[in-house]
């Protein structure tokens, strides 16, 4: 279980990162906290020719609140965000969900944007980004663009990021409205079997489900009577196309979407 050989680039300027990505494209991978990438390297599931380390770039390690949104740079570790004093009041959903991401020992290294880049459909941060309707800030030597979460995640570990692009940051709308998060995993710290986030909106609730489809899926629900709500949740549960695996059956996943979904919607609307 040792990685295949690669060149290692310790970037000291952002330009070096962008130039590297432009030059090497899909053969290069960004390494930040390494908590998702390193296991894949050790297992030789991933074999990049070059690793570009962005953790010595102070400009990427910032959390900034601008107007109604919070920008989290690519170098910000999960533990740093969790310890950010304003987290509870500006991003309460993140404050609820982030402790479910891995363990103390992995959050201390793993970055927020790294989890977004990895796009594991069971991961909490992509779910929260989707639930809040955040954006991913992409940058290449040629251009910068912002992609809404709903368009960023495209499937199991597949995102809208082009090979020459760096995820420079994500931004999350500061949200004071009612929100709730719940997750069911086999053990504490495991990948979610179903993770569920709910955010109050003008018309009702936005519900986001992770762990079931190939990517986090969000759906707006108006205020409904409980019978009608059960029906739409049932439809939603089936639409997610749940699968069987050793940890859970498709039916069990749908059960959790129905049960947790109803619970969270009720909680957020009460």
């Amino acid at each position: 279980m040792k990685p295949a050989a690669f060149d290692y680039v310790r970037a000291e300027h952002l330009d070096e990162v962008l130039d590297g990505l432009t030059r090497e494209g899909g053969d290069a991978r960004i390494i930040a906290g390494g908590q998702s990438l390193m296991p894949m390297l050790n297992m030789r599931l991933a074999r990049p020719k070059t690793l570009i380390d962005i953790m010595r770039l102070p400009e990427l390690a910032r959390i900034e609140r601008k107007g109604g949104s919070v920008t989290v740079g690519a170098g910000v570790r999960q533990a740093t965000l969790l310890a950010w004093p304003e987290l509870g009041k500006t991003l309460p959903l993140v404050a609820q969900a982030l402790p479910w991401t891995g363990h103390v020992q992995t959050r201390s290294r793993g970055t927020v944007c790294g989890s977004i880049a990895h796009a594991d459909p069971s991961a909490e941060l992509p779910l929260v980004l989707s639930a809040l309707g955040g954006e991913v800030h992409l940058r290449s030597t040629k251009k910068r663009r912002r992609v809404p979460a709903g368009e960023f995640f495209a499937g199991m570990m597949v995102t809208a990021r082009a090979d020459d692009e760096l995820i420079e940051a994500i931004s999350l709308p500061a949200n004071q409205r009612a929100c709730a998060f719940r997750e069911v995993a086999r053990r504490h710290g495991d990948f979610a079997i179903v993770a569920c986030a709910a955010v109050a909106t003008d018309k009702g609730v936005r519900l986001a489900i992770g762990g079931v489809a190939d990517m986090p899926v969000t759906r707006e629900f108006p205020r409904l009577e409980s019978g009608a709500l059960d029906d739409v949740l049932n439809t939603f549960a089936y639409e997610l196309d749940a699968r069987d695996d050793v940890h859970a059956s498709a039916r069990y996943r749908r059960d959790l979407v129905r049960l947790l979904g109803a619970e969270l919607i009720r909680e957020v609307l009460s």
Binding site: I31, M38, N42, R77
Partner: peptide
């Protein structure tokens, strides 16, 4: 590492 917990198996020596 630098005052933060880390899994050494998920860290490269050069890092």
């Amino acid at each position: 590492i630098d005052g933060k917990l880390a899994r050494a198996c998920l860290t490269l020596a050069v890092q």
